[in-house]
């Protein structure tokens, strides 16, 4: 669906993207993780043909991105970091504008609004919507014309956990429908939960990529198991043959309250690779 090979981009002599390369298969959710200023939005703009790149090649929907036709672009849905909704228009009128542009029957507007949980807010002016509802309205605009490929630039940034969960549910439903989704985030939990594969972007370069589980396993240097005892104490047991006996003994004594694996999170992997936190700039 997307093939990005050795892409470079500079602004006024400053390199923003350096040798970016990855592939995204059909029906996959691919996450691009990185702190603010890492180059995520620049990459989305390049992949969606909004921005020219200096070097490399970008193939989207099996075509060079620069040669995508108007029809091809109808197979793409894009939600950038700003909502881009008409504040004075109602939710329905906002979607009508894009339904007309994409040639989508107006009958689909209601079902799309229901799909994103805005079924009752159709007549409401966009200016009266909460941040979470605006995100959902933007998502409705993106989904309305049933695109095959969806780009979401930090779709849950600044949202409360409940709204975030709702947005995640909507994104996963779209995956089930067969959409390929490219999303950027600096939220590693979100990436872990949603993405089939992720790439960690730092200062314009991909420092690691793969499935979240693979990455976390790869950087599991400690190989320990953390036990939380009923006494309130936490102990770390090395991941080796002899440990089974210790755990078994503690279990039979009823001393163990919880057992945790202690592999790193995407956040700690990122920190290890770059010395930076994903959300340090937020």
């Amino acid at each position: 669906m997307i093939r990005c090979n050795d892409v470079y981009k500079s602004f006024s002599g400053k390199t923003v993207l350096a040798g970016i390369g990855f592939e995204i298969s059909d029906g996959e959710i691919f996450g691009l993780l990185g702190p603010s200023g890492a180059g995520k939005t620049t990459l989305i703009k390049i992949l969606t043909g909004q921005l020219a790149f200096d070097k490399g090649s970008v193939v989207v929907l099996d075509k060079e991105v620069s040669s995508l036709s108007g029809e091809d672009k109808k197979s793409i849905g894009i939600m950038m970091d700003q909502f881009g909704v008409y504040e004075r228009l109602s939710c329905i009128d906002n979607l009508k504008v894009f339904a007309d542009i994409y040639g989508v029957p107006h009958g689909r507007i209601k079902s799309t609004l229901e799909q994103v949980g805005l079924g009752d807010a159709g007549a409401k002016s966009a200016s009266t919507l909460s941040k979470g509802m605006r995100v959902r309205l933007s998502l409705a605009r993106v989904f309305m014309h049933s695109p095959k490929l969806i780009f979401l630039d930090e779709p849950t940034s600044g949202l409360d956990p409940q709204t975030m969960r709702q947005i995640h549910k909507i994104i996963l439903e779209k995956k089930k429908e067969g959409c390929t989704i490219f999303l950027t985030t600096h939220n590693m939990e979100e990436a872990y939960k949603l993405c089939d594969r992720v790439a960690l972007l730092n200062e314009g370069a991909i420092v690691e990529n793969g499935s979240p589980e693979e990455i976390c396993r790869k950087y599991n240097h400690q190989k320990t198991i953390k036990l939380h005892l009923s006494s309130g104490e936490d102990i770390l047991i090395p991941h080796e043959n002899g440990s089974a006996e210790t755990i078994s003994r503690l279990l039979s004594d009823g001393c163990i309250e919880t057992i945790h694996s202690s592999e790193p999170t995407l956040e700690t992997v990122f920190l290890e690779l770059t010395g930076r936190k994903l959300e340090e700039d937020e």
Partner: peptide, 13 residues
């Protein structure tokens, strides 16, 4: 300013 122009151009306007 509101980014709606970009959304329109991305929708191939």
């Amino acid at each position: 300013e509101k980014n709606t122009l970009r959304v329109l151009t991305m929708a191939n306007v």
